[in-house]
Write a protein that binds this DNA or RNA. Structure first.
Length: 938
RNA sequence: GCGAGCUUAGCUCAGCGGUAGAGCAAGGCUUUUACACAGCUUAGGUCGGGGGUUCGAUCCCCUCAGCUCGCACCA
């Protein structure tokens, strides 16, 4: 199979994915082989009508890596795909669409109410069907090994059944109740929101200081201020003067001496005239404002709590429609903002406004619309959360569930320990309708697993189901088990639950992670996952959150189009180090595209050599260079059998490969995937391509046994590299691996795929394991010496701006027998890679020319001399040598400084002292060599 | 206010107890039988400031500053 000229992902990504799909490669088995481990990840379901963004891309990349890695280790892996109905988000989109379509009876744009619930839901389902392929198609383009046959949607029949089962059970257990509570009300969407859906946002406002007259119980008699004998006026600061209409108390701190004389007295509510009790509570902050607080239980969470504690009256003055209710008297019917203006104006007119000062405070804005959310009292459904939270705290404390990075556990505890009941009803239509029926005759509320036609208690048919739907996160909380068929006792549930890891962004720890833990423990009898892996947030190159309004969104699909899915995946994986946000720059993606191209070309080169197309420098056919067949028993076995006799360069790269395998494995296993990508990048490019292939070119030119041995080594290393890279870059590795001529057809899958035939696909091959048989320290030392000799010569050339065309002779004074052996063994490598014409031995102290460059080497013990005549300007060479001297002096001073300290010699580890001494010796020799050279240059 | 994290070369990031690394960008030399999406080479950092522990600190501890993110908010 021949390869294209360069890496062009468009040519094969789709084809590869289709092949995997057609052959059911991603399908997990409900009947694992005996002894086989199971590894499950349930995907965090994206919005069914959503578009793939960078956050998804990170999530998909990391999960796919884990799944493919575990599969190559032989596990029965399941990565379960699915989508979320995303209540408000989806409903809003459809509402916008119908609003564009026409006008309702009143002449205003069509609303869902004009269509009616049934028609509207039909439309929304259609919308879902039309868009569902978008996000799932995009996941496929990322290369995700998802088991599509098990795909789920949160409104599926099965999942809806699970939702009902959970709702009814919790109701029966007294853990779900309906009641009038203070909740966050979004006027715009006409729905309740949970605490989490409200984002406190800084807004500039005012602090209005309002005068409340303090009176006796009769509401008339003034209470005198003991300090001056005048009637007491209590000034209270507020940021929301309109809520005054709903005040039902005034509070001060019990130990605040300024107000000791008004304890047990009353306050006259300005404008309204209601008489309010003065209560005392340590909750009041004496330092803030005037140290006195107006209490509005209906419209403030803290005031609500105070009201409950002190049994205060609740007066709802702000209506669900965004207007003041009839309880607001003269202000009834005004919009909240208008009411504020009028209240302030009236207070001012009445002389009750003491002062107004600018004040920055936080206002709750709806996560969805960015509009002000008002706390109001409303009848809603709640989950009593504390009994569920406790076990969920315990499993994290005991380590049954671990977070990575661990620091998130603290955040988790803090929230879980101060958790409020969860408001789960939403005044929307798109979602799971609450399975509660109200009887018009007997007034009974019935909660049921099946739809009711009659009232269970009075048999009346005049019953109606609750109009509201459940918070989207309610069904999401069941996701790890509802997707596996729960509440049925399915084989899938038995096989795959609990799942291995939940990989997601930290922004939904509370929305989702915590709730899954609670529900999983309560209903599925075990934790939903053993590990919570928090991935970083993707930001733009300036570190700002990507958002459509800022216009700084980098579209992953565009990057895939331009550079391929693999480079994007590699980029995201390499930036996924713990505890840091990802600042994504397109440069990085381009860099990893170059990496893919590098692999591509290395493979192409191997093909060229394997097919026997080599020729020597003179263009003559290389002897014994025909197409090479795979050695009997395979490359690995052959290399192992012949390892001792392999050339050092081959033993070296095989040895380096083992270290790389270990690093890659550790990175995957320890949630440090960036360690894996770094190790692979460095090995593949800086060791394998830059050195190993270069070393092999000489044997390739010479033909015969040398050539075969290097070919087998390179083939083996490259194939192993493809396996290691496959979880990260599935497309390009499979494409290249598939092009290799040897063995792929004979390879057997890691596991029997339910009786299906073996497939030529990388993902079923065993993930490489480090093999000590290929470890060779001596070869590593020898090759690092060889590299340093070649680099010294290249450095000389580079510094003098010598073109590679300008060749020269190396005159080498070999100081010991080891050096002689070394140069004898590697002369050809040095000639080729340092591009020199000849190596000639030189006696001690002998010169080659009046002007010569001297390159002292420590290991091997030798000195290289180069005749500068006609090659290099002497002054340039002087400069170079002076620079080397400076460097050697700095190095030497540093090392000697260490050694001269008694405390160092006394306390540092022995090996370190030895090493430092050897270094000092080497630097001294180098320095002396260069100094002599400089003297010689005059 | 409480909690977490970050601050390393112009940019994006590794490293985290023994003389600072990569990629990109910059300069130079190269179309040498894979690759110009390339090769070789050069330049660039008192590792945010201060203090401490240690023979030795970018790395551990304390402290200050700046940035970011959670949570709680004071009406």
């Amino acid at each position: 199979m021949s390869l294209e000229k360069s890496y062009e992902p468009k040519g094969f990504e789709q084809k590869r994915y289709d092949f995997w799909m057609q052959n059911g490669c991603f399908e997990a088995s409900d009947n694992p082989v005996a002894g086989q481990k199971t590894y499950t990840i349930v995907i965090p379901p994206p919005n069914v009508t959503g578009v793939l963004h960078m956050g998804h891309a990170v999530m998909l990349t990391l999960e796919d890596i884990l799944i493919r890695w575990r599969r190559m280790h032989g596990d029965n892996t399941l990565w379960l795909p699915g989508t979320d109905h995303a209540g408000i988000a989806t409903q809003t989109q459809v509402e916008k669409q119908i609003a564009k379509e026409g006008k309702g009876p009143t002449g205003k744009p069509l609303t869902r109410h004009d269509l009616g619930r049934e028609k509207f839901l039909e439309r929304t389902w259609k919308w879902k069907e039309d868009h569902h392929g978008g996000i799932t198609g995009q996941m496929k383009r990322m290369g995700c090994a998802l088991d599509w046959k098990r795909e789920r949607f949160t409104l599926d029949d099965g999942l809806s059944k699970a939702v009902r089962e959970v709702f009814v059970t919790l109701y029966e257990q007294g853990l779900i109740y309906r009641g009038d509570r203070i909740i966050n009300w979004c006027v715009r969407s006409q729905s309740a929101l949970s605490d989490l859906e409200v984002i406190p946002t800084e807004r500039k406002g005012n602090l209005w200081h309002i005068r409340y007259a303090i009176v006796e119980k009769d509401g008339k008699t003034p209470v005198k201020d003991p300090s001056n004998g005048q009637p007491t006026v209590l000034t209270i600061a507020t940021t929301r003067p309109e809520t005054l209409l709903g005040d039902t108390a005034v509070a001060v701190h019990p130990e605040d001496e300024r107000y000791a004389h008004i304890h047990g007295k009353f306050a006259k509510l300005p404008l309204v005239g209601r008489v309010l009790p003065v209560i005392t509570d340590a909750y009041v902050d004496r330092e803030f404002g005037t140290g006195a607080l107006k209490v509005t239980p209906a419209h403030d969470f803290n005031d609500y709590d105070l009201g409950q504690k002190h049994k205060l009256e609740i007066i709802q003055v702000m209506g669900l429609d965004g207007k003041i209710t009839s309880a607001g008297g003269a202000y009834a019917g005004l919009k909240f903002a208008e009411a504020r203006e009028k209240v302030v104006a009236d207070l001012d007119a009445a002389g009750l406004l003491a002062k107004v000062e600018p004040h920055t405070h936080k206002v709750g804005l709806s996560e969805r619309y960015g509009e002000v959310v008002e706390p109001v009292i409303s009848k809603q459904w709640f989950v009593k959360i504390e009994p569920l939270a406790k076990p969920a705290i315990d499993v994290v404390r005991s380590g049954k569930i671990e977070f990575a990075p661990k620091s998130w556990e603290k955040t988790y505890f803090e929230w879980m320990e101060n958790i409020r009941d969860w408001c789960i009803s939403r005044q929307l239509w798109w979602g799971h309708q609450i399975p509660a029926w109200y009887c018009a005759d007997c007034g009974e509320t019935s909660v049921s697993r099946t739809d009711l036609k009659k009232c269970p208690s009075c048999n009346s048919t005049r019953i109606q189901q609750d109009e509201d739907v459940l918070d989207t996160w309610f069904s999401s909380a069941l996701w790890p088990f509802s997707t596996l068929g729960w509440p049925e006792k399915t084989k899938a549930m038995e096989t795959f639950y609990p799942t291995a890891v939940l990989e997601t962004g930290f922004d939904i720890i509370f929305f989702w992670v915590a709730r899954m833990i609670m529900m999983g423990l309560h209903f599925a009898g075990d934790v939903p996952f053993k590990k919570v892996y928090m991935h970083p947030m993707v930001r733009d190159e300036k570190g700002e959150k990507m958002s459509k309004s800022k216009g700084n969104v980098i579209d992953p699909l565009l990057l895939i189009d331009q550079h391929g899915a693999d480079p994007l995946r590699f980029t995201l994986a390499s930036m996924s180090g713990q505890g840091r946000d990802i600042k994504l720059s397109v440069d990085r993606v381009e860099g990893y595209r170059a990496f893919a191209n590098k692999l591509w070309n290395a493979t192409k080169f191997l093909h060229l050599q394997l097919s026997g197309g080599g020729a020597d420098e003179g263009g003559n056919t290389v002897p014994n260079a025909g197409p090479l067949a795979e050695p009997k028993g395979g490359a690995e076995a052959w290399l192992k059998a012949n390892f001792k006799s392999l050339a050092p360069a081959n033993r070296w790269i095989l040895s380096r490969l083992q270290s790389t395998i270990q690093k890659v494995e550790n990175g995957f296993a320890n949630w440090e995937i960036n360690e894996s990508t770094n190790a692979l990048y460095e090995f593949a490019w800086l060791e394998f391509c830059d050195w190993s292939i270069e070393f092999a070119k000489l044997p390739f030119r010479r033909g015969g046994k040398e050539r075969e041995e290097s070919l087998i080594t390179i083939h083996y290393v490259l194939e192993t590299l493809f396996k290691l890279l496959h979880p990260i870059m599935p497309f390009v590795t499979e494409e290249l691996w598939d092009s290799l001529p040897w063995k792929k057809a004979a390879n057997t899958p890691v596991r029997a795929r339910d009786g299906k035939p073996a497939l030529a696909t990388l993902q079923f091959h065993a993930f490489p394991k480090p093999d000590l048989a290929f470890k060779d320290e001596a070869a590593e030392v020898e090759m690092s010496r060889l590299k340093s000799v070649i680099e010294a010569v290249r450095n000389f050339r580079g510094e003098n701006n010598l073109s590679p065309k300008k060749e020269f002779v190396l005159h080498v004074h070999m100081k010991d027998a080891g050096a002689k052996t070394f140069f004898a063994a590697h002369a050809n490598d040095i000639l080729t890679l340092a591009r020199v014409t000849k190596i000639e031995e030189l006696g001690a102290g002998k010169s080659v020319s009046k002007f010569e460059a001297v390159i002292p080497l420590a290991n091997p013990a030798a000195e290289i001399r180069i005749d500068l005549d006609g090659l290099v300007d002497v002054e340039e060479e002087r400069k170079r040598v002076r620079k080397e001297i400076e460097k050697a002096k700095v190095d030497l001073a540093h090392v000697e400084g260490k050694l001269s300290k008694e405390s160092f010699v006394a306390k540092a580890p022995k090996e370190l002292i030895e090493k430092t001494r050897a270094e000092a010796e080497a630097f001294r020799a180098k320095l002396a060599g260069f100094e002599a050279a400089l003297k010689k240059l005059g």
